[in-house]
Design a protein around this nucleic acid. Structure first.
Length: 631
RNA sequence: GCCGGUGUAGCUCAGUGGUAGAGCACACGACUCAUAAUCGUGCUGUCCGGAGUUCGACUCUCCGCACCGGCACCA
């Protein structure tokens, strides 16, 4: 028996959990349950990340203290996990004492390593990101590349971690441990990041109040991202070097969506190296869920209607679909129609119906589980297939191939349907063949019992339902053939997966497809004076010519006519407009913007456009003379 | 533009140096224990395009195209 520690990220509490969080957490849950089944000693962590300026702000907006706000959000997460049947051992909160004290201990160790130094940092800072924007990401306009909001010039004393020092050791570690980062594509990516060089990172903030003070300088708060990473250790009782900590650290699997692998696979290991602590075994970055091919987006109202689909198909169908349909490392397109198809084909027809038909035959002919007295054709094959499924399952799970794992189990399920068919078991009720009938039914039930064990990490409720209907009082996790007792009464119940027909599904749609949550677009509280606004010289202009710029995917170079003069401007709209479509259009130009050189092309102004996931040029409702002032 | 990946039946995807597979969908048949279910049979493919290596390539190499990620560019 070995220890197995798996984590999800601790999710940031400034928003409610969505299908993406559910995906990560369900996968981690399946993994945790699988290892428990194997008899390993498992610890499964999920939780929430409660510190930082964003939480502070969200609390303020809600009229609550940060702590009250977090206390209000925590149950929203735990309620969802309960609903999705998540079997975590701890729901970690970073406002807990165990975390605060553990973090302080870790920070002290880090400080004592000599790889933390105080430096003053000045640069452009984005509040929502809670980070300084590096030189190379900066634009002349000083807006955040992610939030598109104005950056603030900040000078502050900061503590830095010598990340750069660990570049070589990280490279060596990743090379020596090929399985360290999953999937391989992400590993290659991070190797190329490493090869292009690492910069030291700031690990503290003095302008933020909601967080944990540095033990060696109480004027500073540890940067929330760094603090969050430590939770994986502090949760175990790192502070007191507890039994649990010694049992479970280092973690076997840090599971997460692909966008935060960099933090976990580079910075976190470097911090651990500095503190002279063992590194986690595996960083697993799975793909994103998309909806109809598009990334989920709150602002665009692209979301997955978990509640509606769960209401129609049930928790286990939802879990099954997520794990069966997608290749874990790649993005997966969530389609209700596919969930529907999976539900009917795999769950209702193959598995649910198999259970029902076998139990029906037992009920009618024996009432109790019959004695397998009379071996015959196909019996050995069935057993062999059971063993194959068990063996292959292990290999698939090691590679996070949940899809293949389930497919393997379903090959077994389909084989049993075929077994029942081939043996024509329902025709064997005559006295002379009844012993054989009993044997076949026993084998079928035993196969179903083993199937229930194999699927239990993925669809735990279903597994239990199956065993209950077979007549077992306690869930039996044995995978050896022949553990099913003879003579117990089966209790066939309602179909475990009643078919859902397409019509019903459609009916369920409208009420389920609740309107997208009202978007609460963040904006800066800072107001500009009218005088400041007047400084902008906005003018009507016409695009005379447009062409792409070499080596830049997003940029177009345009000649525009302002009436009194012609200008050249560069705009990042190449992904949304073809040059031909632009020529002749009237647009609004910021005419008094200081010129900038982008990709060696001078830009003497800026074209206004709505800029979100889509980009749409701002125009006037009707054409006006060129050069007209816009205000 | 650079780096990485992908491109195989209507759909989702496996796959091996010897001229292609699964599931779903579809068609036909069997069966009737079962949730109009199950089982069998069949169906469609220039295995992205081109060149090369080879006795032989979907599988290896090179070039190209498309799509997806990462990085740069977004005045």
């Amino acid at each position: 028996m070995s220890a197995f520690y798996v984590t999800t990220p601790i999710y940031y509490v400034n928003g409610e959990p969505h299908a993406g969080h559910a995906y990560t957490t369900i996968a981690a849950d399946a993994l945790a349950r699988y290892h428990r089944l194997k008899g390993n000693k498992v610890f499964f962590l999920t939780g929430i990340d409660e510190h930082g300026a964003n939480v502070h702000k969200a609390a303020e907006d809600a009229g609550l203290t940060p702590q009250d706000y977090c206390d209000k959000m925590a149950p929203i997460f735990t309620a969802l996990w309960k609903r999705l049947n998540i079997s975590h051992d701890i729901f970690m909160r970073t406002t807990s004492n165990i975390h605060k004290r553990g973090a302080e201990k870790f920070l002290t160790a880090l400080y004592n390593s000599g790889d933390v130094y105080k430096g003053s940092y000045e640069g452009y800072y984005c509040r929502p990101c809670e980070r300084f924007i590096p030189e190379k990401e900066l634009t002349d306009e000083k807006i955040c590349p992610i939030h598109k909001l104005p950056l603030e010039w900040l000078e502050e004393e900061n503590y830095f971690f010598k990340l750069s020092k660990y570049q070589d050791r990280l490279l060596a570690h990743i090379h020596e441990n090929p399985q360290f980062i999953y999937p391989e594509s992400r590993r290659n990516e991070l190797l190329s990041v490493l090869n292009s060089g690492l910069e030291d990172i700031s690990i503290s903030r003095s302008s933020v109040s909601w967080g944990i003070s540095l033990p060696f300088d109480s004027e500073h708060i540890v940067y929330v991202w760094i603090e969050a990473l430590m939770n994986y250790m502090t949760a175990l009782g790192y502070e007191t070097d507890s039994e649990r900590y010694r049992t479970f650290w280092p973690a076997n699997v840090h599971m997460m969506a692909k966008d935060i692998t960099r933090f976990h696979a580079l910075i976190w290991p470097a911090l651990l190296m500095a503190a002279n602590l063992p590194l986690p075994k595996q960083i697993v970055g799975h793909g994103w869920l998309t909806k109809d091919g598009e990334a989920l987006s709150k602002t665009r109202g692209i979301f997955i209607d978990m509640d509606g689909d769960i209401a129609t198909y049930g928790i286990d169908a939802f879990r099954y679909y997520l794990l069966r349909e997608f290749s874990f490392g790649n993005d997966g397109d969530y389609r209700p129609a596919r969930l529907h198809a999976r539900y009917n084909a795999d769950l209702a027809n193959d598995l649910g119906n198999l259970l029902n038909r076998v139990l029906g035959l037992v009920n009618k002919n024996f009432e109790v589980i019959p004695d397998p007295t009379t071996p015959g054709e196909f019996d050995d094959e069935i057993r062999a297939i059971a063993q194959t499924a068990i063996d292959q399952l292990d290999a698939h799970i090691k590679k996070f191939a949940f899809d293949n794992a389930l497919e393997t189990i379903w090959e077994f399920v389909r084989r049993i349907n075929r077994y029942v068919q081939q043996t024509q078991v329902w025709t064997l009720a005559k006295p002379e063949t009844k012993p054989r009938m009993g044997t076949i039914l026993y084998n079928s039930l035993e196969a179903l019992r083993i199937i229930s064990v194999l699927i239990s990490p993925f669809v735990p409720d279903t597994a239990e339902k199956i065993q209950k209907q077979i007549g077992l009082e306690e869930f039996d996790t044995a995978t050896e053939w022949g553990c099913l007792p003879v003579g117990i009464k089966v209790s066939r119940g309602e179909p475990i997966f009643p078919r859902v027909d397409a019509k019903k599904q459609k009916q369920a749609q409208p009420k389920a497809a609740a309107k997208p949550k009202p978007k609460t677009e963040q904006k800066t509280a800072d107001l500009v004076s009218f005088a400041d606004f007047q400084k902008l010289d906005l003018r009507v202009a016409r695009i005379l010519a447009a062409e792409p710029i070499d080596g830049a995917d997003r940029l177009l170079k345009m000649q525009v006519d302002l009436g009194t003069e012609k200008r050249q401007v560069v705009a990042g709209i190449a992904e949304h407009y073809t040059p031909e479509a632009l020529v002749g259009k009237q647009v609004i130009i910021v005419a008094n913007l200081e010129p900038a050189t982008i990709r060696n092309v001078e830009s003497q102004g800026m074209v206004l456009a709505g800029s979100g996931d889509a980009v749409v040029l701002a125009t006037l409702e009707k054409e006006m003379p060129l050069g007209t002032q816009v205000r």
